[in-house]
């Protein structure tokens, strides 16, 4: 059988094919994450934690010690772990529901306390696992099962800007950025920085990764790429909102 260099060493072989839908941007982000973990050679000292929502599908994604938690609670679980074992590299992986709605208080307080964990949040502009409900990240006018006429900002407000908000709260030494899963180079660079910041013992690290959800967007691959790369990045600009000098 031909060798597969497109399969991160830190991915668990026995759980593949993974459980994500065809064309899912989240799984692409996870491949990028896998490759960065390989490059940094940190698999044996990393603890990976996933939230509820599609992120729970990653409970056996990696050949890395993993804990699947409750909805919104991935950040405190990793904060506790890191406090108990500072030598561990802790990754808290969540969706936009976990990070910006049901667990928003944890993210905010972790940023304020400068907890030295790496939080990675997938923004796919909807609640995907439950079938496409409105999320804090749903764009104005974007349809969702709980916003059948599209998100009406006068009634339910405008989309949340997580990295921008956290950058206001976070301490010096934090790394806070937004990337998109389909820009492989940018995505990997920012994941690498978000992990390196923790390895260097500097402080809180957070990246939001814009991601496609063809099944719940009811889009084909091309439309999905278009929506995420054009529509979403218009509302959610890519960039680094806080970056320690040493990482720049």
């Amino acid at each position: 059988m031909a060798e597969n260099n497109n399969f991160p060493k830190s991915w668990k072989k026995s759980s593949k094919p993974h459980k994500f839908c065809p064309g899912c941007g989240q799984s692409l982000a996870l491949k990028n994450l896998g490759f960065v973990i390989d490059e940094l050679q940190i698999a044996d000292k990393t603890v990976y934690a996933c939230d509820i929502g599609c992120s729970l599908l990653t409970w056996d994604m990696f050949e890395i010690d993993t804990i699947q938690t409750h909805h919104g609670r991935v950040v405190p679980t990793m904060v506790g772990f890191k406090l108990a074992k500072p030598s561990a590299i802790t990754i808290a992986f969540m969706g936009d529901g976990g990070g910006y709605a049901i667990g928003a208080q944890h993210l905010i307080n972790a940023a304020m306390r400068d907890d030295p964990i790496t939080a990675i949040l997938i923004n796919n502009a909807n609640y995907a696992m439950t079938g496409g409900q409105m999320a804090p990240t749903t764009l104005v006018g974007q349809k969702a099962t709980t916003a059948p006429n599209g998100r009406d900002w006068q009634k339910v407000g405008k989309p949340i800007h997580g990295p921008e908000m956290l950058a206001e709260i976070a301490q010096e030494g934090s790394y806070i950025a937004r990337t998109i899963s389909t820009d492989i180079a940018d995505c990997k660079t920012k994941i690498r920085k978000a992990l390196q910041n923790q390895i260097d013992g500097r402080g809180f690290s957070f990246i939001e990764i814009i991601s496609m959800c063809p099944v719940n967007w009811h889009t084909d691959a091309l439309q999905s790429l278009d929506f995420s790369e054009k529509e979403m990045t218009k509302v959610y600009p890519l960039g680094e909102f806080k970056c320690p000098q040493k990482l720049a």
């Binding site: 597969n4 260099n5 497109n6 094919p17 065809p22 064309g23 899912c24 492989i184």
Partner: peptide, 29 residues
């Protein structure tokens, strides 16, 4: 569901297909 196939007369080996594949299902060497 249908799988992709490549026309090797056209392929330049840039690896873009490999990078974008969320499933690790294409390898370009």
């Amino acid at each position: 569901t249908p799988m992709p196939i490549v026309d090797m007369e056209k392929c330049i080996g840039c690896g873009k297909c490999m990078q974008i594949c969320p499933d690790g299902a294409i390898n370009v060497e």
